[in-house]
Simulated scan of single mutants.
Amino acid sequence: MRILLWHVHGSWTHAFVQGEHEYLIPGPPHGIGLAGRPWRATEVDLSEVDDVDVVVVQRVEELSQVPPGVPVIYLEHNTPKYPAQEHPLADWDGTLVHVTHFNSLMWDCGSTRTVVIEHGVVDPGPLYTGELPRVAAVINEPVRRGRIVGSDLLPRFDPIDVFGIATEEIGGQGDHELGRLHRELARRRVYLHPARWTSLGLSLLEAMHLGMPVVALACTEAVRAVPPEAGAISADVDELVRAARELIADPALAQEKGRRAREFALAHYGLDAFLRNWDVLLKEVTG
């Protein structure tokens, strides 16, 4: 199947193009193309694309660039700004995919058909060593997004190392940088997910795949993604601080909870199920 999609969210696209289809990604001036990623995909000039089976759209402005007569799936990555916000494609006659059940619950999509296909992660492997008795956090644009992603909470988890990502929404990091990030994260004893209101961060799922124990705010989709046996999840920040300190002080406990985090992530956010669910939908909409 020939699939046209834009490179918007690098980590999600990295997982999606692991399937068995032919992936066409618009380059400049209509998109950022592969942006240096060694994906099994083809960067194309959108003006020359005239033979595709389906288009995966991730931004409203992309709809006007879809070749006529081609089935369209709209992929919504984000939470609404407030519960029950009307989606821009409410009462649309196409199919809208949410990446979490929380997002599907909170967006008002009217009569538009909605489907949830949860994230899948390319397994970086069980790299966890936990050799550094510190907390790690990965936050997309921590200064600009502030309280939304919990930047104000970070000092309470000292000692902490914060890995900031400024470009995730326009493609994220290259594979080499991502691999280095995973190795550095895995050296820290605990992973922190402090976001108050955001779609489920793929860095959280990647940390669990690494075998890291996690402490997470019980907000949005995190309550489904983080089982208590993987670390700690709570809306009480003091409780999370205590849990992080306990894990830092007890490497054996951290190792055991990290093992359980990895088992859960592989079972619920593995790549095979993600690709299989997408294949079912792609076949359905192309009829």
Rank of each mutant, 00 (worst) to 15 (best):
V241C: 10
L202M: 12
M212D: 01
L247E: 08
A249R: 14
A232Q: 03
T220D: 13
T198D: 15
T198M: 13
A267K: 13
A252Q: 13
G270F: 04
F274V: 01
H176S: 12
G201V: 00
L200V: 07
E263N: 08
V215I: 13
W278P: 03
W197Y: 15
R188F: 02
L178R: 04
D175L: 08
S199L: 04
A273R: 07
A225T: 06
V241S: 11
A218L: 09
S234A: 11
L210T: 03
H193P: 00
P228F: 12
A265W: 06
R262N: 13
R260G: 07
A265T: 10
H182T: 00
R260T: 09
H182L: 04
P213L: 04
I248L: 15
L178P: 01
M212V: 00
L281C: 10
E221P: 04
P228K: 11
Y191E: 07
T198Q: 15
A265V: 05
L204K: 02
L271R: 06
P213R: 00
A267V: 08
A195T: 09
A222D: 11
L240Q: 04
A252M: 12
R242C: 01
W197A: 14
H182C: 13
F264A: 12
L240T: 08
R180N: 11
L205M: 08
E263S: 14
L247P: 03
M212I: 00
L271G: 05
E246Q: 13
R196E: 10
L271N: 01
V190W: 05
E246A: 13
V190C: 10
H193S: 15
L204N: 06
E246W: 01
A235E: 14
R245V: 03
L202A: 03
L271D: 01
L266E: 14
D236H: 14
A273T: 11
R189I: 06
G231S: 06
S234Y: 08
E229D: 14
E177H: 03
G258E: 06
W197G: 10
G201C: 02
V223I: 14
F274R: 02
R245W: 10
G231P: 02
P227N: 08
A186G: 14
A243S: 14
R245I: 05
N277V: 05
L217W: 05
D250Q: 02
V237A: 15
G231H: 01
E184A: 14
A232V: 06
Y191L: 05
A252L: 14
W278H: 11
L281D: 08
A243Q: 07
L266R: 15
V190F: 08
L185W: 02
A249K: 05
H209Q: 08
V280W: 06
V226S: 02
V190M: 11
L217A: 05
R260E: 12
V280T: 12
E246H: 07
V280A: 12
L210E: 04
H193L: 04
V215R: 03
R262A: 09
H193Q: 15
L205W: 03
E246D: 15
E221M: 08
Y269W: 15
V215M: 10
L253T: 09
G258L: 03
I248F: 07
A232W: 05
L281K: 01
I233A: 03
A243I: 02
K257C: 05
L204V: 01
A254F: 01
E246M: 11
R187W: 06
E229A: 10
R180W: 09
G179E: 10
Q255W: 02
L181W: 05
